[in-house]
Nucleic acid binder design. Structure first.
Lengths: 170, 170
DNA sequence: TCAAAATGTTTGGTGTACCAAACTCGCAAA
DNA sequence: TTTGCGAGTTTGGTACACCAAACATTTTGA
């Protein structure tokens, strides 16, 4: 039933919107979807038909809109992609929240499995490795602002890093 | 002349293809553009007209195809985006070349100025900061493969890191 | 309860991006 | 010089994604 042909970016956006709105109310309303995505109400109707045909949402004209299990699975995955990318942009690259959000919305359609997994891994690694961590990211922020590395501070930075590790792993 | 309305992703792809092909021969040929982008020859003709109208390429039916200065500037910028993203994916995230290339092709349309600059900055930082560098990336690769950090090695790693810095900055 | 208001749908139309196939042009070999 | 083939173009058609405005239904509040 209803082949698993890759969804268009647009359809992914609709699924994601429904997923989010379901979490606010019990079901998504066409008007809210339209608002969320910045399109006309009429456009939503067409998209809903498409998603219904693919078996991703429960929908009939004038009915409530909910995700099917299959739809929820896909929507959840899209949301996961969104969150991972957003996390990377804000936590690692230190991008401003609005820019990060906008970029995540576009990147989430473009980054597939293996790359996403690697990104997750990288974020984890940065949080766990004693040589990385938040203070490395703070150094990065300095580097971004000043455009250069302050070699004089490196020695202290390295010593601090080592001391911190030793105090945490005696 | 010819407003600077944002190019579509498709048009960016054509510009980039012409830019690349110009570097191989003196001018791009419609057939090669079609091949490069995996579309029919007829589709290329339509796209070329669009780019010509925007003043981005020199083109008339049956003529040679070259970029105008304006077109070359944009194409160069797209290519820069591509290279930066590819660099990040391969050098930092250690993604396989083919996957990285494919992802870069899609991401280059989606990542705008500030994010790209930050990415450049991050790559530079990783290459310059004594606490980062290639051996941190090597640790990351290990972490990806084993799924965990080897705390026993952290002490040595930290010491090595410090020694390396001291020997380079006496 | 019963009309507005709000929400949802339909219709007709736009722009982009593509394909397949027919057609045209230009060049190179016979 | 002509012709035939490869490269380029045109034409007619599809699919997607959208809008504006007319229309239908549902909800609501007086």
């Amino acid at each position: 039933m209803t082949k698993k042909k890759a969804l268009t970016e647009s359809m992914e956006d609709y699924l994601e919107a429904i997923w989010l709105l379901e979490r606010v109310h019990d079901a998504a309303r066409a008007k809210d979807i339209a608002e969320h995505l910045g399109v006309q109400r009429g456009t939503v109707t067409g998209a809903l038909k498409g998603l219904e045909e693919k078996g991703l949402i429960n929908y009939a004209p004038y009915s409530h809109i909910t995700l099917t299990p299959k739809g929820a699975e896909i929507a959840g995955e899209i949301n996961r992609r969104h969150k991972v990318i957003l996390n990377f942009l804000t936590e690692v690259l230190r991008i401003a929240p609005e820019t990060a959000e906008a970029t995540a919305c576009r990147m989430e359609h473009v980054v597939e499995g293996t790359v996403l997994d690697r990104l997750v891994c990288f974020i984890d690694f940065v949080h766990q490795c004693p040589r990385a961590g938040n203070d490395l990211l703070r150094s990065f922020t300095n580097y971004c602002e000043s455009g250069r590395l302050d070699w004089d501070q490196c020695q202290t930075c390295l010593d601090d890093c080592r001391d911190r590790f030793q105090s945490q792993h005696p």
